[in-house]
Nucleic acid binder design. Structure first.
Lengths: 149, 149
DNA sequence: CTAACTGCAAAGGGTTTGCAAGGGT
DNA sequence: ACCCTTGCAAACCCTTTGCAGTTAG
């Protein structure tokens, strides 16, 4: 198991590189967060905190939150739902909702068309579920933020 | 404009009906929340609270939250992101993330294929944005919850 | 060496809960 | 009349902030 560290370093490096490239320092706390983010998909900030502290008890809560914010700023990590931290609802019978959300200024642009509707039948069959609605969000940089770079 | 009230009642009734059908009482507070949810798309719980209290100052914060939870339980309203109320992140280079989320038991089923990727070019052009990732969530009832009904 | 970063603890703020009063059915 | 529902306010808990000590570069 002497090479675990090395093996990890490799998968980890793209996020760390993004940090360096943006002028941020690579520290133990940030390495720990990157390590946790590498190891799995979608998770809440709180879950990341727990995992980081399980493996690196010395790392403080605040550093995890701060690192997630930075990783998100350099686009090494995708925040869901606007980076807002609260519950969102929409009327069920109003069909589906589609947004483009700017990672930089958080502007939201809504649009209607959607190819996801075409997936509904297939997914219902394959998973044996009934689908009642869906949400599609694209993340990126809006026109004015692109211009400002 | 004499018929605004009536017109509203009509669009509103499906949510109220869902409440009744599930054995919940139809009260002034719940009517106010339904009215707010009818009038627009995606919004945060806090925004719903604000709108309800703007038009019906007598309605308490707590009732709005409680009503949203009930509407969500009877599938008259779609909560985003698992009904969880916190920020979620995922590694950006792991591509996009797609979930089916059961409205009843909150089970999450992940899957890979996605037609949304095909929309990226079109949306980038039309909105003049750069897209870096996306999130697609389907909401409904899972196999075992369907069986249990 | 120095500015960036950290951990801690306390503050912040949206959401939930306990309880006595109120209102559907 | 019954008991579900409400409004209030306090409790809750995740997240953010202020600060003095630490560390990457």
């Amino acid at each position: 198991m002497a090479h675990d560290g090395k093996a990890h370093e490799q998968t980890v490096s793209s996020m760390l590189q993004a940090l360096k490239a943006a002028g941020y320092r690579v520290t133990a706390a940030r390495r720990a967060v990157v390590e946790a983010m590498q190891s799995s998909g979608h998770r809440s900030a709180r879950e990341v905190v727990e995992e980081v502290r399980r493996r690196h008890p010395g790392v403080g809560r605040a550093s995890v939150y701060r690192t997630l914010a930075i990783l998100s700023k350099v686009c090494a990590v995708q925040p869901s739902l606007l980076g807002t931290t609260r519950a969102h609802y929409s009327a069920a019978d109003q069909g589906s909702h589609h947004h483009f959300i700017c990672n930089r200024c958080h502007r939201v642009i809504e649009f209607d068309e959607c190819t996801a509707a075409g997936m509904v039948g297939d997914i219902e069959q394959r998973l044996g579920v009934r689908i009642q609605g869906h949400l599609l969000e694209f993340y990126g940089l809006c026109r004015s933020c692109l211009a400002a770079m």
